[in-house]
């Protein structure tokens, strides 16, 4: 274990430290007392995470993550597979609750309200923080019913006309209206992959959330559908706060204002996207974006 850091800012003196994943952290320049570099805090924060640790059973997936998510901004979360970025994203609307043995420590707030306080209604939280998943998952219902699902369960529409309007508005904002307006009552599962993903986005924005979490929304799509979704993210960012997890660094560079780089469960660096991709502060970030690993 007498190894020295090949790169990075960590001190190799803490060579007795081992990550719970079994990796030798000191080798890649991570130390136990690692502090995220860059600008973790910003002025207009919609959501704040402070000292967040997430465990699956005995295994720690997220170590001491502190970051702000800016209002009406897109923050991209990048990093190698298994670095915990999806886990962290799911903790932002408590989707980890559905996973057995998942435990969260630390403090996450939306507009200053504690997400994990016993007083918080998780149903209401998820209506405020919507989510789009990696694989398009339209319900086996009609296109109309897919979009109307949220407004119906939250009682947002008083009349059928209201509901029709909401469905149309959501589909228009998701850029899907023109393609599906003649077949609203056909099955949503019959659409193409890219259309399905836009349907899922329409479904998510139909309840007018404040934040939209996107977990690799384009990884199952072809380049044209991906470009379409990226345009959509850009448009949506004027009204919504968006956190997007992606494996595609070009995508992160194209759609986001800020970028957070995760590595082995730790948040390494958060900075304006332009800086991360042109002049990263941390050597690990640099190694990742230049393709040395990942």
């Amino acid at each position: 274990m007498n190894t020295s850091a090949t790169f990075g800012v960590g001190t190799p003196s803490e060579s007795d430290f081992r990550d719970t994943r079994g990796g030798d952290m000191s080798e890649i320049g991570l130390t136990k007392g690692h502090v995220t570099v860059g600008s973790v805090e910003i002025q207009a924060a919609k959501m704040t995470a402070r000292g967040v640790n997430i465990f699956y059973g005995d295994k720690q997936a997220i170590h001491d993550v502190t970051v702000d998510i800016g209002k009406n901004q897109v923050i991209a979360m990048i990093g190698p597979s298994g670095c915990g970025k999806s886990t962290f994203l799911r903790s932002l609307n408590r989707m980890n609750d559905t996973i057995d043995g998942c435990k969260i420590e630390g403090d996450i707030r939306i507009d200053g309200e504690d997400l994990y306080s016993p007083k918080l209604d998780v149903v209401e939280l998820r209506a405020r923080v919507g989510m789009v998943f990696q694989k398009p998952n339209p319900f086996p219902k009609s296109i109309y019913d897919n979009v109307a699902y949220g407004p119906k369960i939250h009682g947002l529409a008083e009349t059928r006309v209201d509901l029709d309007e909401m469905v149309e508005k959501s589909l228009r904002r998701a850029g899907l209206w023109d393609e599906v307006k003649d077949r609203l009552f056909q099955a949503g599962t019959g659409l193409s992959g890219g259309q399905q993903q836009r349907l899922c986005i329409a479904r998510a924005i139909a309840v007018s959330p404040e934040v939209i979490l996107m977990d690799e929304p384009c990884s199952a799509l072809d380049p044209i559908a991906t470009a379409r979704i990226e345009e959509l993210i850009e448009e949506l960012s004027h009204n919504f706060t968006i956190a997007i997890v992606t494996h595609n660094m070009q995508q992160a560079a194209r759609v986001s204002q800020r970028t957070a780089y995760f590595h082995l469960g730790r948040l390494i660096e958060v900075n304006p996207t332009e800086q991360v991709f042109t002049n990263p502060e941390h050597s690990l970030t640099e190694s990742y974006i230049t393709g040395r690993f990942g």
Binding site: M95, T98, G130, F133, N137, F139
Partner: peptide, 26 residues
């Protein structure tokens, strides 16, 4: 598929709403 349940829960549906409106119809 679990993804359908996740989709519904992420919309702010309760567990029972998810079962009645998504899982059972599917």
């Amino acid at each position: 598929p679990q993804s359908l349940r996740d989709g519904s829960l992420a919309m702010g549906a309760t567990h029972s709403e998810t079962v009645i409106r998504v899982v059972i119809p599917a």
